[in-house]
Amino acid sequence: MAAEPAASLPYRLTGHVGRRFVQAVEEFGYGAALLVESLYWIVAGHWLNQPVRLRVVAAEMIDIGVSAVPVVAILAFANGGMMALQGIYTLQDFGAQSQVIPGIAMSVTREFGVLIAGIVVAGRSGSAIAARIGTMNMSQEIDALRVMGIEPVRYLVAPMLLAMLVMMPVLAILADAMAVTGGGVITSLKLHMALPVYFDRALAELVPSDIGQGLAKSFVFGVLVVVVAAGNGFIARGGAEGLGRATTRSVVLCIAAIVVADMIFTLFLSR
């Protein structure tokens, strides 16, 4: 049989792009199916004698949320401080340094608080969830669950989703508070302003919808982290190397998904 003619570069390139596109659509569909199935078990599990156990949800809340508190607090505090420094430096040319306070208050509550919380959770839990489910997959633990009559999505993913839906908003509010405080410490030092005065002004500038925007985003970020990380865990193949790849991919995709979702949100909510 004659050898097939060599594929030209544009042909191979188009083929590669096409395959990646199909793979991306497939993974998107898989993630959506994971989300729908998790929600199904959360709602209907009780009637099917497969309830989502609150004990497991509580354990996940500690793992996903409580353990992330120190990192979120430090990062948000430092970020608020940096925003204050840069804001004062930029605004002093116009003699409007004091306008840094509404700037910090609004950008933190609408944008950066939840973004910091999301990125920390994506880094911590995005890798941990993918690694845990991937390891279970490779050591046949997922098969063991299924043959025991325990649905893996109900037992593993649904509790994570519930825990995330509770803890992401909490972490987002913590990040808001710490970032505003960080900004306040720097502002009070630089502008010789008492902290209570700073807080009074910051709070006066905020309306409930500012915080609401951040909270709405936090739910979406939480869902994205769970779905992307769990999806990467379930499709992990190829031993330790495959697991490492899936974990890294999970973190990168979680952060990318959060940033893109944030941009889309901001686009619509800032109109």
Partner: peptide
């Protein structure tokens, strides 16, 4: 299918015990 699976038991090649649980919790899980 869930009801049927309660009537079967499987011992996997590598055991497939849940590594995050004690032996006792593994046996208690079902």
């Amino acid at each position: 299918m869930l009801a049927l699976r309660r009537r079967i038991g499987v011992s996997f090649q590598g055991g497939a015990l849940f590594n995050s649980m004690t032996v006792g919790d593994n046996v208690c899980l079902p």
